[in-house]
Design a protein around this nucleic acid. Structure first.
Length: 507
RNA sequence: GGUGCGGUGGCCAAGUGGCCUAAGGCGAUGGAUUGCAAAUCCAUUAUUCGCGGGUUCGAAUCCCGCUCGCACCUCCA
């Protein structure tokens, strides 16, 4: 069965074929590093991770690149594409406050007024979160995760080329703009036409801010601005690059092609960001397309509402993992599963209940894996992707990443009790290369690098033995008391013929 | 106003013309088990697919209208 993906460019499901056989070049719009990434960001990154892992299991060699946006930019880009406050400056203020209140550990950041330190601080935080959640690309930093600020020179080269071939001009304010009218396909990705965009902008974009541009839709490539914290010399004055140019440049440079296979991002990036990337990349390459497939993840809601800081439903990965939602620590595999389990093109509703459901599913998979490992001594049979449950799982994903269908096959199979544990283990391992929850590929090394202090001073084994002793003496009040202690500490307590066992709750 | 996506059980969600009196997960209920629980196992849990028309021998699945939700059109994954 062919792989089909929904292509935003054509608004259709299309058979997926890579430009070069067996190799997929994929670019994902990554985080801005002025703050901690939130779970909505990670849903989009995890969606890219799912594509990648799926294609890898299908036999593709996936070259994946994700950018770090660390150029400061401005908070209100509609003001002549660059008014308002500098985001790096805001981040510095926040960090200083957090440093004072002790939220930022000592030594984590020396000087919050240095934007490069701020960017690195949040980049490290992002990588830490991403690795915990099993984002494969996070283990390929910095090779596959470039910083925009390391590619300013190449951006300038592309801007110069756009000026040379007539796609860009210097406005009355000395800033360099891309001329959308020079690119006939502008609007194709988002389904907008220049006329509609002009109307849509009516009333919302002030006339005086537009007077420097030929068309209201023209967007910034280079802004001369001495006041910006991060600034670079250029033929058009000392200043900073426009937001969209970094992706065009880094995709081409790191993936080594003018036409890549897949480009991913959140749905909000369709317009203007990706529309502008296409205009820039095709404006320099002369190719018909920049990415053959544009794939976008829909936004995440929290308890049915859009996530926002003012509503108090704004969660970072570390918030969730440290129990801000559930009241107790959440295992990274649970959050990974939760963010992965719903189809990328529907709104996902992130809820506390959903998180607990996911914990149940992850536990089920984890225990199956443990059981099979034990039964087989870790010796898996030799099977390939045509093995029934694997084939069904992959077939579901082949249909535009139908993850629910895939999970449906998986759980149906689990409930049927495998008759050959060696084959079952092999099948589970293949499927887990994609899901990466039972167990997580890098869980052990990450756990080793962290202080394991989650027991909170409790002697888990001792308490379990205490329960067994009390039960043997029929002192049930004592046994219940000890069990309550363990449960309050977030442990699940089970009796078995071999004695009481306590395991940490997943969520 | 323009553009795009979607509305299936208590919740999440698959199914895109007959195998659907609708997969799977979670939950709930009853039973086995247990000192009691937990875990586990067994059983039950939508004659119905936002609403109204139409096409068809046959529709959750195709068409038309309506309605509700979401997103983008301004920085945002």
């Amino acid at each position: 069965m062919p792989i089909r993906f929904y292509n935003t460019l054509t608004n259709r499901l299309e058979d997926f074929n890579s430009v070069e056989p067996n190799v997929v070049r994929m670019y994902s719009c990554g985080p801005t590093v002025y703050d901690f990434a939130h779970i909505g960001n990670f849903r989009s990154f995890l969606f890219a991770d799912l594509i990648r892992r799926f294609l890898e299991v299908q036999g593709y060699d996936v070259d994946h690149v994700m950018n770090i946006t660390d150029v400061g930019h401005m908070t209100e880009d509609h003001l002549a594409d660059g008014g308002g406050e500098d985001k790096m400056e805001l981040a510095a203020q926040r960090l200083k406050e957090d440093k004072k209140s002790g939220k930022v550990p000592d030594g984590a950041i020396e000087n919050p007024d240095d934007p490069y330190q701020v960017a690195q601080y949040f980049t490290d935080a992002f990588l830490g979160d991403a690795r915990k959640l099993g984002l494969k690309i996070a283990f390929e930093y910095p090779e596959k995760i470039p910083h925009a600020t390391n590619h300013i020179e190449d951006m300038q080269l592309m801007i110069a080329e756009l000026l040379k071939n007539g796609h860009a001009y210097v406005g009355a304010d000395q800033a360099v703009y891309y001329s959308v009218e020079s690119f006939p396909n502008y609007g194709k990705l988002s389904g907008n036409s220049l006329d509609q965009l002009r109307e849509g902008s009516g009333g919302r974009v002030e006339q005086k801010d537009q007077s420097n541009k030929k068309h209201p839709g023209d967007f910034l490539l280079w802004k001369p601005d001495q006041s910006h914290i991060m600034k670079w010399d250029s033929p058009w004055g000392t200043g900073y690059p426009g937001w969209h140019i970094e992706c065009s440049v880094m995709a081409k440079k790191l993936l080594g092609r003018d036409v890549i296979d897949i480009h991913t991002g959140g749905e909000d990036l369709i317009f203007p960001h990706h529309e502008c990337e296409i205009a820039q990349s095709c404006g320099t390459s002369g190719e018909e397309s920049f990415a053959r497939f544009w794939m976008h993840a829909r936004f995440l809601l929290v308890e049915g509402e859009k996530m926002s800081k003012s509503k108090g439903n704004f969660f970072t990965v570390r918030d969730v993992l440290s129990g801000k939602v559930t009241g107790r620590d959440v295992h990274p595999a649970v959050l990974r599963y939760e963010l992965l389990r719903s189809h990328y093109r529907s709104n996902m509703n992130f809820t506390e209940k959903g998180l607990r459901d996911s914990a149940g599913a992850v536990r089920k998979l984890t225990e199956l894996n443990a059981r099979l490992e034990e039964q087989t001594g870790g010796e898996a049979a030799q099977i390939d992707n045509s093995y029934p449950v694997v084939a069904e799982f992959l077939q579901a994903l082949s249909d535009d990443l139908n993850i629910s269908g895939a999970l449906g096959c998986l759980f149906t199979w689990i409930s049927q009790k495998p008759d050959n544990p060696h084959e079952a283990l092999a099948a589970l391992r293949i499927i887990n290369k994609i899901l990466d929850v039972a167990p997580m590929e890098h869980a052990q090394e990450l756990a080793d690098s962290e202080e394991a202090s989650d027991a909170g001073g409790l002697d888990i084994k001792g308490l379990c033995q205490g329960i067994d002793a009390a039960r043997a003496n029929k002192d049930y009040a004592k046994a219940d008391e000890l069990r309550d202690q363990l449960q309050d500490a977030g442990y699940e307590v089970r009796n078995s013929p071999e004695g009481t066992v306590a395991t940490k709750q997943l969520a």
